[in-house]
Amino acid sequence: MLEFLKHYGLPIHLSTAGPGIDEIIVLIHWLMFILFVGWGTFFIISLVKFRASKNPKADHEGVKSHLSSILEVAVAVVEIVLLIGFAFPIWASRVNDVPTSAEDGAVHIRVIAQQFAWNIHYPGLDGIFGETKVDLVDEEENPIGLDRSSIGGSDDFYTINQMHIPVNRKIRVDLSTKDVIHSFKLPELRVAQDAIPGMSIPVHFEATMTSEEYLQKMADTPRKGKGLEIVCAQLCGLGHYRMKGYLTIDTETDYKSWLDSEAQYLEEYEDDEW
């Protein structure tokens, strides 16, 4: 079934959450498949067998057994198993096991959505996010309204539409939005979460493959040469279709050197300013 679904679109996954989510998608499709084939077979046999030309006199009672109750109970049992065995635990780990940088060594990032871009805010070397303030927002100079003078704010940096994460490390994203509802989706990582105005919602995941490895795997497919993207999955205005960011999954060393280059860039930029 997984192969079937993959053939019909489902991309490979590259996150620790992937197997669980793909498994439940596969199981549900088995349930759907069995019910549909069961019903369908019964349906076609009935249509052929009981057409008026072949069976001119209907049987008033029809099916006398109550076998169908067994079907209904069976569906109910399967659904209970799916819920308790798979759906609830996956959800619980999705919303409860939010890692922190202190305890789990997770990489902590803020993502601030806006029409029609993703602002990715990194805390810098000190690991502390500076404050952001609405009245400091300047779409050209300071789209997230970062207060450089606040504690931990001086070494923060942000990118627009460029998200880098290291492979095999827990990632925590605090998701918010400046204007309307957006939805932060990384299809290949099986991650999706709405960004709701007025709320900051934690999302967490762990990539199991670097972008480079992924691209190698995709070499012979229609996706070849196309990297990973941050999709906006919720209608957010007329630029919704072009709202996308780029996700790069680095090795630990590449990630470090990317952080360094961003810090370097920040310093040069600051020197220019003063």
């Binding site: 009935s46 009981f50 006199k57 209907a58 029809g62």
Partner: peptide, 9 residues
């Protein structure tokens, strides 16, 4: 679906 069984369609 079951209503179809035994019918004269």
């Amino acid at each position: 679906f079951i209503s179809l069984w035994g019918a004269s369609i």
